[in-house]
Lab assay of single mutants.
Amino acid sequence: MQIFVKTLTGKTITLEVEPSDTIENVKAKIQDKEGIPPDQQRLIFAGKQLEDGRTLSDYNIQKESTSHLVLR
Rank of each mutant, 00 (worst) to 15 (best):
P19F: 06
E16M: 13
Y59Q: 03
I3Y: 02
T7Y: 11
T66W: 07
H68G: 07
F4N: 07
S65P: 11
V17R: 00
K6F: 07
D39F: 10
R42K: 12
K11L: 09
V70N: 05
R42I: 15
F45T: 02
N25M: 15
D52I: 05
P38F: 12
D32T: 11
V5W: 02
L43A: 00
E16C: 14
L56W: 03
D52N: 11
Q40P: 02
T12F: 10
I13D: 00
R54E: 05
S57R: 12
E16T: 13
T14H: 07
I23D: 00
K48G: 06
G47R: 03
G53H: 14
L71A: 07
E64K: 08
S65L: 08
E64N: 15
K29P: 00
E16G: 06
P38K: 15
T14M: 12
K6Y: 09
R72A: 14
V70Q: 10
R72Q: 15
E34Q: 07
S67N: 11
Q62C: 11
G10L: 03
D32K: 13
I36N: 02
S20R: 08
G35I: 02
T7N: 06
G35M: 05
P19M: 08
Y59G: 01
K6W: 07
D32Q: 14
L15R: 00
T9L: 11
Q41W: 05
I36T: 06
K29T: 03
T22L: 10
E18T: 14
I3C: 02
Y59D: 01
G53E: 10
D21H: 05
F45G: 02
T12V: 14
A46Y: 09
K29S: 04
G10I: 02
P37R: 08
N60Y: 06
T66S: 10
K27G: 01
P37A: 08
N60K: 07
L56C: 01
S20C: 12
T14L: 10
V17W: 02
T14P: 06
Q41V: 09
I36C: 05
S20N: 13
E51N: 07
K11R: 11
R42G: 06
E24Q: 12
F45E: 01
D21S: 07
R42D: 09
T55M: 09
E51S: 07
I30S: 00
K33T: 08
E34S: 13
E51R: 08
K33A: 11
T9G: 13
I61D: 01
A46R: 14
I13Q: 01
E51M: 11
R72G: 11
E64F: 13
R54W: 10
R42N: 13
A46F: 09
T9N: 14
G47N: 06
L43S: 00
L15F: 04
L8C: 15
K29H: 04
K6V: 13
R54H: 11
E64I: 13
R54L: 10
G53I: 07
L56I: 09
D21I: 05
F45K: 03
K33E: 07
G53T: 10
L69V: 07
G10F: 03
V17Y: 03
M1D: 02
V17P: 01
Q41E: 01
P19Y: 07
K6P: 02
Q31P: 01
D39P: 07
E24A: 15
L15E: 00
E34I: 15
V26H: 00
S67K: 11
T22E: 03
S57N: 10
D52W: 03
Q49N: 12
P19W: 08
S57V: 07
E24H: 10
S65I: 08
K27T: 02
T12G: 03
E64W: 13
I13R: 01
R42F: 13
N60S: 08
E16F: 12
I23K: 00
R42H: 12
K29C: 04
T22K: 07
T12R: 08
T14V: 14
K63R: 13
G47P: 01
S67C: 15
Q41F: 14
Q40N: 09
I36V: 08
Y59P: 01
I61W: 04
D32M: 14
K48L: 11
A46D: 14
E18P: 03
L15Q: 00
T66L: 10
K6E: 09
E18R: 14
D52V: 05
Q62D: 14
L8N: 11
H68S: 08
Q2N: 11
D39I: 09
S67I: 15
G35L: 04
L69G: 02
K27P: 00
N60D: 10
E34G: 04
D58I: 02
K33W: 06
K33H: 09
P38A: 15
A46M: 14
Q40V: 10
A46C: 13
Q49C: 15
R72M: 15
D39H: 13
G53Q: 11
E34P: 01
S20M: 11
E18I: 11
M1S: 03
L71P: 08
R54T: 06
P38R: 13
R72I: 15
T55P: 05
P19A: 09
S65R: 07
E34R: 05
K11C: 11
D21Q: 04
G35A: 05
K11D: 07
T22V: 04
S65V: 08
I3F: 05
K6H: 15
I44M: 11
D21E: 09
L8G: 12
Q62A: 10
K11P: 04
S57I: 08
I23T: 04
T7F: 15
T66Y: 08
Q40A: 09
V17G: 02
D32F: 11
I13L: 09
Q31E: 09
E18A: 13
P37I: 04
E24I: 11
S65Y: 07
A46L: 13
I44P: 00
I30T: 01
S57Y: 09
I44L: 11
K6N: 07
S57F: 09
Q2R: 14
F45M: 06
V17M: 04
P19I: 08
D32L: 14
L71V: 12
Y59R: 01
Y59T: 02
P37S: 08
G10V: 02
A28H: 11
T14R: 09
F4T: 09
I30Y: 02
E18H: 14
S20H: 12
D32V: 13
Q2A: 07
K63A: 15
